[in-house]
């Protein structure tokens, strides 16, 4: 199988790592903690509707950090990214079309 051959070639190129990537993980942890502080702090500031926007934007950024640095979603194969995206896309279908009903009730 050609996929197997190329996989073998690719893994041969990867240099075996001998130590833990402590530094990069520490950076991600700091970023996550900073974002947590930011979201918790900002929600005590009255911003009106923007509180919701800020909170969920920060949540999305945190989730993206976990996905990229811990789950290596960008490093993997295309099929993995499609699988991950499909879940979100289909959830989007559920929300979008249901809310066409919910938001327009009584009109």
């Amino acid at each position: 199988m050609s996929a197997t051959a190329s996989l073998g070639a690719r893994s041969a190129k990867v240099k075996p790592m001998r130590s833990l990537p402590l530094r990069s993980h520490l950076m991600v942890w700091l970023a996550l903690m900073a974002l947590l502080a930011l979201t918790a702090g900002s929600s005590f500031v009255p911003l009106g509707t923007f509180n919701v926007v800020v909170n969920f934007t920060i949540a999305a950024i945190k989730a993206a950090l976990v996905l990229v640095f811990f789950m290596h979603v960008a490093r993997g194969e295309a099929a993995v990214r499609i699988a991950a995206a499909a879940g979100l896309l289909w959830l989007g279908f559920l929300f979008a079309l249901s809310f066409v009903d919910i938001l327009a009730r009584g009109h």
Binding site: T39, S43, F44, A59
Partner: peptide
């Protein structure tokens, strides 16, 4: 990560 703002931070200001 998503439950936290959804449940705890709805209205704190």
């Amino acid at each position: 990560i998503f439950l936290y703002p959804a449940l705890y931070l709805v209205s704190r200001s």
